[in-house]
Amino acid sequence: MSKFKRKTGGGTPVISTASLPDIVFMLLFFFMVATVMREVTYKVKIVVPSATDVRKITHRSLVSYIYVGKPLPRYKNLYGKEAVIQLNDVIAKPSDIPSFVASERSKKNEDDAALLTFSIKSDRDVTMGVISDVKDALREAQAYRVMYSARKGPIGDNLK
């Protein structure tokens, strides 16, 4: 006849999950706003160098990318281990760049084609040989606007 009867069917109380969708939606919207769609699948390893004098690209539609870097480990036996150029989804030679430039220009209307910038997105550890091949090919194709992709940071990061 105890007064303090143990409650029957105790256990932990159920936590309400009603606000879970709200939290997840919040995360979803954050990622939708803060990220951009992947343009291509990288076949080369790219860690861009740092620079302090960087500008953000304002017109994303007016930029085409040229990727330069060493092939990823799983492509090593296909493309070797020297730095290569990637255009869209394929590994290419410098001599392919003029036709790439032409095809990128043909996708835009005439006014935009003149303003098209080619962003050289290159790994920090490549040598100038392959970069200057790219630049020569761009000059050949009369694409003079270039952008060297970099992330904002002290240049001391590059010299380590």
């Binding site: 951009v36 769609m37 500008r55 060297y148 992330r151």
Partner: peptide, 17 residues
Amino acid sequence: TTTMDVNKGIERRLPQK
């Protein structure tokens, strides 16, 4: 499907051929 990397860089004009 998305990446975080922002498109920043150093802009230069290549010399005319």
